[in-house]
Amino acid sequence: MVVLEELTKKEDLFVSGHGLCPGCGIPIILKLVLRATTHPIVIVNATGCLQISSTRFPLTSWKLNWIHSSSGNAASTISGIETMYKVLKKKGKLQTDTEIKFLAIVGDGGTNDIGFSSLSGAIERGHDFVYLCYDNQSYANSGGQCSSASPIGTSTSTTPTGKILPGKLQYRKDITRIIAAHKLPYVAQAAPWNWEDLYTKAGKAFNIEGPAYLNVLNPCPKTWGIPSDKSIELTRIAADTCIWPLYEIDGDNNIKLNYKPENKLPVTEWLKKQDRFEHLLNIENKWIVDEIQNEVDKNWNRLIYNEKKGINN
């Protein structure tokens, strides 16, 4: 059991004065993740909302070592840093006795799309790092274009709803499941509404040796079309509709569902609160809502079945 009061006493390593939008979920996720280890952390941050909003020269919101190299190479950049750390450790040339932790922070575009092979390669090589994907389901930094994490039916600036098209026509990649297929020591899906769950998972990810992957739903008021005060609530609805199940998979392939809603809500509860899905509630798009509901149900049932049987994917 984590006591929030204790967390308030820990130092902020990502400080105020950043330029992220009102109601953005990223700093909330960071507040919890950066507190989940007592070790020093070195961060590689891919191009995206967080990177541009937190490092506008000569300002920086980071109180720890932070490096940006590009949008698609955070995992390979961190591979180099972690390898060099091991070399210095082996040669006895490290300036500190404290174990350093490595954290890559990347949005869904840099994870699902342009940085996908970089991430897959780094996991295959078994580098000891935590990869945090803040998944707001679009390229929010460049204005909300479609990414392969954007769900079917989403209206984005590159899959706009028009007279004949109802938004994005493809399903999103289930990136957590794809990463889990790499059989790495730890994979988890989390969301900021359940801060305790997110904090605990980040702690596990840091403690485990080898690669760990965290996929965290990140509410984006701007691209989702929600009031800024509703961003945490939306992530809660995502869990209650089973759109975004909270679960984790360990190195022995044991899958654990961390939250099972007492009353599973229909997906329309999730869709109707966001401008990006508004058009789906029109009668001619009912088939898309039915498909979404069908997929969500199948996925949820699969997770429950796999948890019972001890199957990973």
Partner: peptide, 21 residues
């Protein structure tokens, strides 16, 4: 390399008093 060694200085000099909402 244009690195910034003044870590966490946005809390002193960063965005503040934004009248957004």
């Amino acid at each position: 390399g244009g690195i910034n060694s003044d870590s966490g200085n946005s809390i002193k000099k960063g965005l503040n008093n934004l009248e957004i909402c």
